[in-house]
Simulated assay, not measured.
Amino acid sequence: MRAKPLFAFVAIAFGAFAAVTSRAADQTPQAGGSSPQPNTAPTVAPKEAAPPPSVTIIGAGDAHGVLGRDVRSPTNEDMGHIVDVIVDRTGTVRAAVIDFGGFLGVGSRKIVVDWNALHFGRIADKSDAITLELTKDQVKAAPEYKEDAPIVVLGASGSLQPFSP
């Protein structure tokens, strides 16, 4: 019966001895005679405040969104509406995806036109259309846009710039 209390006492004493020697080893003097220092984490300098962001104010009549806007030909023919904008790797706007033809989405197809072929002269409100510098026949002949496939961009005469990756 005496063995259990004696064993517990030895185990506690050994644990206390190990803790004391471990703490003493952490505080041993360094080479060069420096004084013992407790193990502490390095202090972190407070973060400097981030500079404020730049701010640009655009007047309400000076800029408008283009998604969903109607697209018309120079002769006022309905050419569809813009459903997406395509940018290159640098973030430069290259083209617009136009949902062309059909009625209420039935029979329509998406084509891609060069951004420079679009003119945004009057877009003060949502009822104003964007003008496309192409004829309806040119747009009908354009290949259909499919995601994850090479994009064929229809451009106005002489205005299309090749993409160089």
Results as ranks from 00 to 15, higher is better:
G32R: 03
G33A: 12
G33V: 08
S35A: 11
P36T: 02
P38C: 08
N39K: 15
T43K: 09
V44L: 01
P46D: 01
P46K: 02
P46M: 02
E48K: 11
A49E: 14
A50P: 11
P51F: 13
P52M: 12
P53G: 09
T56H: 09
T56S: 13
I57K: 08
I57A: 05
I57L: 13
I57W: 04
I58A: 13
A60L: 15
D62E: 06
A63M: 12
G65I: 05
G65S: 10
G65V: 08
V66A: 01
V66D: 03
L67H: 07
L67D: 10
L67N: 10
L67C: 04
G68P: 01
R69N: 02
R69Q: 00
R72I: 07
P74S: 05
P74G: 04
T75W: 07
E77Y: 12
M79Q: 07
M79A: 05
V83N: 09
D84F: 07
V85Y: 09
V85T: 11
V87R: 12
R89D: 14
R89K: 14
T90P: 02
G91V: 00
T92A: 12
T92C: 06
R94I: 00
A96D: 09
A96K: 08
F100K: 00
F103A: 14
L104N: 13
G105A: 04
G105T: 02
V106S: 10
G107R: 01
G107S: 00
G107A: 01
I111E: 01
D114S: 10
W115C: 01
W115M: 14
R122Q: 15
I123Y: 04
I123L: 06
A124E: 15
D125L: 02
D128P: 06
A129C: 00
L134C: 04
V139N: 00
K140C: 06
K140N: 08
A142F: 06
A142S: 05
A142H: 03
P143E: 01
P143M: 03
K146E: 13
E147K: 12
E147H: 07
A149Y: 07
P150C: 05
P150A: 03
V152Y: 15
L154T: 03
A156D: 11
S157C: 03
S157L: 13
S157H: 13
G158Y: 06
S159P: 01
Q161A: 15
P162E: 08
P162T: 10
P162V: 05
P162I: 06
F163P: 01
S164G: 14
S164F: 13
